[in-house]
Design a protein around this nucleic acid. Structure first.
Length: 490
RNA sequence: CGGAGCGUAGCGCAGUCCGGUAGCGCGCCUGUUUUGGGAGCAGGAUGUCGGGGGUUCGAAUCCCUCCGCUCCGACCA
């Protein structure tokens, strides 16, 4: 490149600021540029736009199938929970009381000034579910009578509300979407195995669909879900070095069967309290998808979750060719559909360069350019989003159609591989609390892995937590509970 | 709830210190030439200056008061 060209071509990114310059702002701008979501009039709530919701729908579609394959049925439990229900379980209420939205009235009336004011105070206030253990426990106490009723495995897709002090779109909103599974077993061991099984289902989902790897393990006691005897988690690392709890699976022991009185008559004729689990994955995973894969030009969608996998971009120079090109695009889209590949043709009147940037910012895995040249030569030009413009390739229509499946699979795999490399680089092994302090005081981003023993009952570790706002993220299964990962977290 | 910023056109901002009747860029609309990694030209539309109150002949600007948003912390998926 000549000097002149260099000076004219300031490296321009589709998203400003870049990740390097200001990660939180970059994150919000990626979402805006890809038209995935926006903030709602109510603080902490979001409007999930069609393109963002399509990602969630794909998450639902695939995860739901995986959950059902575990012998779980879907059901739906109500949004409103009697206040008395959540008050039943002391640990649980300690964990959630501060974030509960409370419904106290059921009617609006106009006052003298003409303003609508709440009237009709409820005799018993209700809370909007922050999670559904208590109400599902109440229902289960009637459904479960005999060991023959077990195991009971039910999942619901729902919205929940936790009044957040500091909301961030997708990552922490007051209202969010999720699935919550609630299983009941005869024994501790069955519940424990189930909690472990479900975190493994999530791991598979995270790796195979989201192309997001993570550190999988147990939460330390103080980081557990309120009421759980074990909480398992996937801790993924974002590009800024912070960890994100990607989902959780809890062994709830007999906590909720005690408070909700879920009992079954066992084979030996005695009444026993059941053992329960719960496990959830929320719309924050969309945020993880962005913070792991997106770059300074915007979103990069893993092919398996992309709203559409191929963007067909008609390159129209001359009105005379328009109809022919569009017809060609329609045919191409149909043939892709026949191959199980979702494609969308950009039929807007935008200039071709703008069509490209739109597809780039939305992170569409593969862009295909179709112009007069392609039609004349019977060849297509296509580009993988994650490889940049240097990844441009040409192929005949036939070659393209027969290879597109493989191209998408390869991209999915490459995204996971790259994410895994980044993840490994995010965690540094340290041998002492001194080294941990030095690490967090230094420039390097990410977290540390250290012997678990060293942080237990340690005043210095409490000080480090405070000084650098880091927390124990998990005790990875790979280290058999001997090591703990400590990092800043979302 | 603490700390720091900010609220002016759809978006991003200037104007505020020092009061004088609303501006820039992008986007949008029309036309035209363009179109393969962010087009050029010519026209055009768009504002309760966050809300309320006060000072003043006159307030985006000064004073009081409320509200909201963003970032950093505490809480958390």
């Amino acid at each position: 490149m000549t000097e002149a060209a260099k000076s004219n071509k300031a490296p321009r990114t589709a998203i400003t600021p870049t990740r390097e310059e200001n990660f939180p702002e970059w994150y919000q701008n990626v979402i805006k540029a890809a038209e995935m979501a926006e903030n709602a009039p109510v603080r902490g709530c979001m409007v999930i736009r069609p393109y963002g919701y399509a990602v969630w729908e794909n998450i639902q579609k695939h995860l739901d199938a995986m959950i059902k394959a575990e012998g779980v049925d879907n059901a739906y439990f109500p949004l409103l929970i009697p206040l008395s229900f959540i008050a039943k379980e002391a640990k649980h209420i300690d964990g959630f009381a501060k974030e509960c939205a409370v419904v106290t009235h059921h009617r609006l009336e106009a006052n003298d000034a003409g303003d609508l004011v709440p009237a009709g105070e409820l005799t018993e206030p209700m809370i909007i579910r922050p999670t559904s253990e208590t109400i599902i426990g109440d229902v289960y106490s009637r459904w479960v009578q005999s060991y023959r009723d077990l195991p009971l495995k039910i999942n619901q897709w729902a919205n929940v509300m936790r009044w957040e002090m500091r909301p961030r779109i997708f990552l922490r909103t007051s209202e969010f979407l999720w699935q919550e599974g609630h299983n009941v077993f005869e024994t501790h061991d069955q519940a424990e195995a189930d909690a472990r099984r479900m975190i493994d289902v999530y791991r598979e989902f995270y790796e195979d669909y989201m192309a997001v790897p993570g550190y999988i393990g147990a939460k330390t006691p103080d980081e557990r879900f309120p009421g759980a005897i074990e909480t398992y988690t996937i801790e993924a690392f974002m590009q800024d070095g912070k960890a994100l709890q990607g989902c959780t699976s809890h062994n709830l022991g007999q906590t909720f069967s005690n408070s909700a009185d879920i009992k079954f008559l066992d084979r030996d004729g005695t009444l026993k309290h059941a053992w329960t689990t719960s496990w959830g994955l929320s719309s924050r995973t969309v945020g993880a998808l962005i913070m792991v894969h997106a770059d300074d030009d915007g979103m990069v969608m893993p092919p398996k979750l992309a709203p559409h996998q191929v963007a067909i971009l008609p390159i129209v120079r001359d009105d005379a060719d328009t109809d022919k090109i569009l017809a060609f695009c329609d045919e191409l889209q149909k043939q892709l559909a026949a191959k199980g590949v979702t494609a969308r043709t950009d039929k807007t009147e935008a200039r071709s360069s703008d069509k490209m940037w739109t597809a780039i910012k939305k992170g569409v895995p593969v862009r295909v350019e179709v112009g007069a040249r392609e039609i004349a030569e019977g060849k297509l030009t296509f580009t993988r989003r994650d490889l940049g413009k240097d990844g441009k390739k040409t192929a005949t229509v036939g070659e393209f159609l027969s290879s597109i499946g493989g191209v998408l699979d390869q991209m999915q795999k490459d995204m996971l591989d790259r994410a895994r490399e980044k993840m490994k680089a995010m965690v540094t092994d340290v041998a002492s609390l001194k080294e941990m302090r030095d690490f967090f005081a230094g420039e390097k981003i990410g977290g540390v892995r250290i012997d678990y023993k060293l942080i237990q009952d340690s005043e210095e570790f409490e000080a480090i937590k405070k000084d650098f706002s880091v927390t124990p993220r998990c005790l990875p299964f790979d280290d058999e509970g001997q090591k703990v990962i400590v990092a800043k977290a979302y």
